[in-house]
Each structure stands twice: as C-alpha cells, then as structure tokens.
Amino acid sequence: MRRDRIRAAFVGGVPDRLEEGVLYVSLEHDAMLHLCACGCGHEVSTPLGPTDWRLTWDGASISLSPSVGSGALACRSHYLIERNAVRWLMPMTDWSIADEQDRTRAAKDRYWGPTTSGNDTPDATQPATPVPTNPSWWGRMWNRVFG
C-alpha cells in the first residue's frame, strides 16, 4: 500500500524485520534504511553524508534531502520526505537515473577530490572515504539491500 506518512526510529543497527512507514536512522553508522514507500516491499538504503542525504529532525518530524529515487527497483518510485509526509514525484526514468548518477559522482569528486583513473581509486593526496566503524552492521545492510 502506497504511503503518505513515515516516521523515524533512531537505532544502533539494522532491525531483523523492517516495519512499513518507518525510516530507521543510525547516526552511529551514518545510514538510513526503510521499506519503499510505494509498498513494493523492497528495502531502500540512504547513506547520510556531505555528498549523500541530509536528515533534518526537529524533535517531532523528519525531512530528507534530496529526494529518494528508487531507480534500481522495478517500481521506480520517487518521493520526498518532508516533516514525516511522503510527497510523491514523477517515477524515475532512465534519463533521470543517469543524471542523478552523474550529479552524485560530481559531488563526490568535488568533496573528496577527483579520482586518478576511471576505476574509482582515490588520489593519495585527497582525504579517504570514511570507513564504517562496524563492518558487520554494513555487511548486514549490504546483504539486505543487494543480497
């Protein structure tokens, strides 16, 4: 069932079972996870960071920026989360997915520094991408999203 509301649950790690309409936020791991708001049941991972998503919490509601685009999923859902409300946008297209991937790559290059080659090997003079502090948590996240 398509959702029009979502609430935050601040957690230390990934729960065994995700509940619909809940955005699980782990500040310790700079990551968020939720079931797609369209109701398809797929898990959506949104990392927190200077080149990823930003979370605003006012003590009662949450907002995410930028929008959540599920271009890799069959549903191609695309929505904003603003003050716990899900605001639906046009579904992701091949063009919008490619455009967002380009924007993300450019933002990461601006922030972390350009790569030395096309294989995404960072330049040794640039700061390294942060490494998760708890690999087992990230391993679980990876398996949930891509497993």
Rank of each mutant, 00 (worst) to 15 (best):
125 T>D: 09
111 Y>G: 05
43 E>D: 05
136 S>T: 12
70 S>N: 12
48 L>S: 05
47 P>R: 14
104 T>N: 08
36 C>P: 03
65 S>G: 10
69 G>M: 07
109 D>G: 06
83 R>C: 03
38 C>Y: 04
112 W>G: 09
76 R>Q: 15
53 W>G: 01
146 F>V: 06
94 D>S: 15
47 P>S: 13
122 P>T: 13
71 G>E: 00
65 S>E: 15
37 A>D: 04
106 A>W: 14
1 M>Y: 10
3 R>T: 05
18 L>W: 14
114 P>L: 07
7 R>G: 03
21 G>N: 08
91 P>D: 02
75 C>A: 11
67 S>V: 06
10 F>N: 09
52 D>F: 14
64 L>N: 03
41 G>I: 11
17 R>H: 13
42 H>C: 12
6 I>M: 15
71 G>K: 02
35 L>R: 06
117 S>C: 03
4 D>I: 10
9 A>R: 12
97 I>D: 02
122 P>Y: 12
61 S>Y: 05
21 G>V: 13
24 Y>P: 01
76 R>L: 12
7 R>F: 04
12 G>A: 00
84 N>F: 06
40 C>R: 05
45 S>D: 08
97 I>A: 03
55 L>P: 02
27 L>N: 14
93 T>Q: 08
124 A>G: 01
53 W>Y: 14
109 D>A: 13
14 V>Y: 00
116 T>E: 10
101 Q>A: 11
90 M>Y: 09
55 L>H: 02
34 H>N: 08
131 V>I: 05
62 I>Y: 09
62 I>C: 12
35 L>M: 04
32 M>F: 11
113 G>N: 03
113 G>L: 02
